[in-house]
Simulated assay, not measured.
Amino acid sequence: MFVPDVADFEVSCVVMESCILPCSFQGGTDVVIHWIQVTAGDLHVHSFYHNKHQLAHQVQRFRDRTSLFKDQISRGNASLQLTGVKVQDQGRYKCHTSVIRGNKESFINLKVDGMRNTQIH
């Protein structure tokens, strides 16, 4: 069974900071997770299956900047942590999850803001 999410989830992140793209699903075993950057032509951001991270097809510019919360995957948390956010990271992402009970896709719109201005005027 395929369960589409109704609306995209909006996330705002700041350049050079860490950011979490939320994604949840009905937990289970034999979990497959694929994170894809849709706006850039379906770039592979992060994959997880066979109970481990699968980064062979990961696009170079995401290398060493993505992670999942591995201890929470079985409970239905497929959120992606992205570190050192870049302007090019802005766009639409797809989180595809698959367990024995079915597949789910959710979409996240990532907006990237410039550096935070911490000076007091």
Rank of each mutant, 00 (worst) to 15 (best):
V38P: 00
V31R: 02
L68T: 08
G27I: 05
A78P: 13
L82D: 03
Y49E: 09
H46M: 05
L82F: 03
F69R: 08
S18I: 06
L55N: 09
D30R: 09
V6P: 06
I108P: 00
H96W: 12
D71S: 15
L110C: 14
M16T: 12
L43I: 02
R61G: 04
A7Y: 07
I108Y: 02
H46Q: 14
D42W: 04
G84A: 14
E105A: 11
V45C: 11
G102S: 08
D71C: 03
L43M: 14
S106Y: 00
V32Y: 15
G102W: 00
M16W: 05
L80Y: 03
L21C: 02
N103L: 05
L55V: 00
R101S: 12
N103V: 06
S12V: 11
D64W: 10
C95E: 07
T39I: 07
T39F: 10
L110I: 10
V11F: 03
T29M: 01
H46C: 01
H57R: 06
R101T: 12
E10K: 01
N77E: 14
L43D: 09
I20E: 14
T83S: 14
V112H: 05
S24E: 11
C95Q: 10
Q58P: 02
Q26K: 12
V45Q: 08
I73Q: 06
S67I: 04
L80P: 04
H50S: 07
V85K: 02
L43A: 14
F48A: 01
D8A: 13
K86T: 09
L82S: 03
C13F: 02
F48Q: 01
L110V: 13
I36A: 03
F107M: 02
Y93W: 03
L55I: 05
L110K: 01
K94R: 15
